[in-house]
Write a protein that binds this DNA or RNA. Structure first.
Lengths: 333, 333
DNA sequence: TTGAAAGCGCTAACAG
DNA sequence: CTGTTAGCGCTTTCAA
């Protein structure tokens, strides 16, 4: 910076002023140009460490996650976060802790040492979490998860509405007996989607038949089993709502073994919109999309507000934002 | 740090010495303990910016990528990189530029401003690249890509050996007429796998029949078309090697329409090991895995060597590392 | 064995 | 409008 100042024939302060477009200092365009020319001439690049040290603002935000890869589609959370951060001149410092609580603690410490302006904590599955306490030393928001006491701002998908929309889609096609191949783990997604399933039924005055919800592991083989169980009912369903696309794939396999055509003999709707599966199988799967990208965006967006405008933004109790799951219509319904 | 020094009754220098385990300074254990106690007492956390400013080492590495999400499985590159960085006390600064050359330039600049110790440039598809010039101001390595002049260290998958292994697997099962549903784009993966295909055939003294390689778009519908073309040959193949798992999925769809059973009537082998597809379809797909995770690891590993040991590590010409693609045996062959 | 002191490159009062 | 100056929190030389 001194070199630039010297070359431009001004003081280092002036350089700083033009580089930061400081309000007060009314630098004449002529001087500004001279400085900028010197910057280009010398290929000068400001040192963000020094700047951060002085201004205690690094324009960097920490992104802590349990697993980024398991649900490939969920990586879009990271993408949404990164895109929005980037658009605001922020960079993401990434740590993937793999679920170990102590590692998370350390990860946050490393970020704090690097003076991140805020921290995002994202999970791959929608679930309650206990984030490391030190995380709250800076503004923080949770993505796809929440604390039981809702003490931290968070954004999650609307599982209930998603489940309801899926079932309503089936209802609109005239189906009255709708099976549900559900995850046997009572995770928020499973609980919420079941509530949505019941709501949709109730709204159409269809009594709830517990036989129509079959739980299994939320993978292809589980979808296969649940579908087989459903179809061997004395009065089998004419449509199946699958907890996720992997189970839907299993349902496809089962239905094929049963010689049933989709959607003519039976309709199938999934959840997750894992494009690689959903778009490519035959017939293409109608499914509900999880708003991963949007959650990533919203999380960073809100975090940035928290960072730049703490008192105005922070609500009490902290905001718990819910994003809808859009219906992706393809050909299985 | 001054507070810690005061509380421990030593100078700030001493605190720095014990925190950094400095060789020269022989601090008696007694003093050391006192300092450490004070650190804990005050919940002191060093400021990495100040440290970096002084020592010009941030223990942070920049990770630039074109797309992290398109090929979900490729996100494992990021995971491998992050895991290895983490194991060495480094954090990753992430930017996903989406293919815009100017953005890449800026991304690298932002990283350089933040004084990253090195930069990784990773692509989602194996291909030649022209990385921004400023990237070379710090140690750098390329993952899943390379420059035409091989002027930067890089790591890529062994496409030729992968293709060869896939075909040899088919050969070993007794197949002699092996179709190849190939990407119509002559990308390195397509070119390499075709070379491997030919090598395997030649090694078994099977003449190359150009009719047996059908090119199409490397998605499910392309796989469908290529398979149909292959099967309508006067002398159709008994096995199909698909350029990737998406095409294999299309092949499955086609074969089903043709009422051909896999693997009894015809064998199918894929490439990529996209678990979501490969493991869940019926029958589970035998395929070649791309070493994404390993490339991520190797890239960071090598970069760290470059950073910590520049002259010893840097080879001339820069190392071009090739990692094998392991065969994942399932049930389609 | 420990401490004083000089910066690393920058921002931002404060003065002129 | 521009320059002087005092740090931000740390590492590290040099001296004691």
């Amino acid at each position: 910076m001194n070199d630039v100042a010297r070359l431009a024939g001004v003081s280092q302060t002036t350089v700083s002023f033009v580089l930061n477009d400081v309000e007060g200092a009314n630098i004449p365009p002529e001087t500004k140009d001279r400085v900028l020319a010197a910057v280009k001439e010398l290929d000068y690049r400001p040192n963000a460490l020094a700047r951060g040290l002085r201004s205690s603002q690094t324009h960097t935000i920490g992104f802590v996650t349990d697993r980024i890869a398991i649900t490939p589609y969920a990586v879009r959370t990271l993408e949404g976060a990164q895109d929005l951060a980037w658009a605001n001149g922020y960079l993401l410092l990434l740590v993937n802790t793999g679920g170990d609580q102590r590692l998370k603690q350390i990860a946050v410490d490393m970020m704090l040492e690097r003076q991140v302006d805020g921290i995002i904590y994202a999970t791959m599955y929608h679930r309650p979490v206990k984030p490391p306490a030190n995380m709250l030393e800076v503004p923080a928001v949770l993505i796809n998860c929440y604390t039981d006491d809702h003490s931290i701002a968070s954004v999650v998908p609307d599982e209930v509405l998603g489940g309801r929309t899926a079932v309503e889609t089936l209802l609109q096609k005239g189906h009255r007996r709708i099976g549900f191949a559900l995850d046997s783990n009572p995770v928020p997604a499973a609980v919420g989607r079941l509530v949505g399933y019941k709501q949709a039924l109730a709204a159409s005055n269809i009594p709830f038949d517990p036989n129509l919800v079959q739980t299994a592991e939320s993978i292809a083989s589980g979808g296969y089993q649940a579908t087989m169980a459903l179809m061997s009912l004395p009065d089998p369903p004419t449509a199946i709502f699958c907890y996720n696309d992997r189970m839907a794939l299993g349902a496809y396999n089962a239905l094929r073994d049963l010689n049933l055509a989709i959607p003519d003999d039976i309709a199938v709707i999934g959840f997750d919109n894992q494009e690689l599966i959903a778009a490519d199988i035959a017939p293409p799967l109608t499914t509900m999309a999880l708003p991963h990208y949007e959650m990533g965006q919203w999380g960073v967006q809100y975090l940035l507000q928290l960072i730049e405008n703490p008192e105005q933004t922070q609500q009490n109790p902290p905001i718990q934002h819910i994003l809808p799951c859009p219906l992706i219509e393809r050909a299985s319904v």
